[in-house]
């Protein structure tokens, strides 16, 4: 029932029966989620529910023990972050994953540096590109030559976001993107999500803030103890439904049929 509005469309991402365990503990246990173009899917759950682990399988940070990933309907092999990037999967990690000792442009292009014709790292061009995209995302950003350790939380976040947006992501993973932000910057992230959605980008949004999810997401998948409780259309459920899914692991659709 949940895929009614995606009639006939191929999902951008389909993760099927994903399993991963650490030292005998099943962190993710046969979880399936999917994501369509221009859609925001919220991943909800307590700390330790397995949502970050699941998503790290998609971003290449972890290798799955079982299950399959399909991108645009084709089976995908993602063994490391480079593989994920080659599928245009970009991730904004909760920790931001910035090298604090490097400046904004070095971080933005880390692993994908612009090179001169001589095969040298082209810092000037990278800085120029960084200035362009930051002008768009966060016009107040000025510290282009300082190491990112000298930046505020919001500025660091905008560097991490710029990195994901710059490289034409088709699939964007945002892990608690607003957790460390003030109200103004949170609004900035919300606006950005709307804009990216309109461009047809699919977004996985990991959050434990139900209001965020209700506001920004089209669908929500809830996890508990490494298992999927269920996926629902956000318009069809109330805050309380989501809460009981998170806390009790109860799927509202099961209740209705019962």
């Amino acid at each position: 029932m949940e895929n009614q509005k995606h009639n006939g469309q191929t999902p951008l991402v389909e993760m099927k029966d994903i399993q991963i365990s650490f030292g005998g503990i099943k962190a993710v246990d046969k979880v399936s989620v999917d994501l369509y173009p221009g859609e925001v899917v919220g991943l909800l759950g307590h700390n330790g529910a397995g949502k970050s682990t699941l998503i790290k399988v998609l971003s290449g940070a972890y290798q799955k023990d079982g299950g399959e990933i399909y991108i645009n309907g084709e089976k995908a092999t993602i063994n490391n972050p480079r593989d994920a990037r080659s599928y245009n999967i970009e991730t904004i990690y909760q920790t931001l994953a910035l090298a604090d000792n490097l400046d904004a442009s070095s971080n933005l292009f880390l692993g994908r540096e612009l090179m001169t014709s001589m095969g040298m790292v082209d810092d000037d061009s990278m800085e120029a590109e960084t200035r362009k995209i930051m002008n768009r995302l966060n016009p107040n950003f000025e510290k282009f030559t300082a190491p990112v350790s000298a930046l505020s939380g919001g500025q660091r976040q905008s560097v991490a976001i710029a990195r994901a947006v710059y490289f034409n992501a088709k699939i964007l993973i945002m892990d608690e993107p607003t957790a460390a932000l003030g109200p103004h910057e949170t609004q900035m992230v919300s606006d950005l999500i709307e804009k990216l959605k309109a461009d047809g980008i699919g977004i996985f949004l990991i959050s434990h803030d139900i209001h965020d999810v209700m506001k920004l997401c089209d669908r929500a998948s809830v996890m508990k103890n490494g298992q999927l409780v269920g996926s629902v259309n956000v318009d069809d459920v109330t805050d309380d439904d989501l809460l009981s899914m998170i806390i009790l692991g109860k799927n509202p659709s099961e209740n209705k049929s019962a």
Partner: peptide, 20 residues
């Protein structure tokens, strides 16, 4: 790139790995 990756790895090994 080699030099850039040396400094990135020293600054944040995890971030360097996540950057491929």
């Amino acid at each position: 790139r080699f030099g850039r990756y040396i400094y990135a790895t020293g600054g944040n090994p995890e971030a360097a790995e996540l950057s491929g």
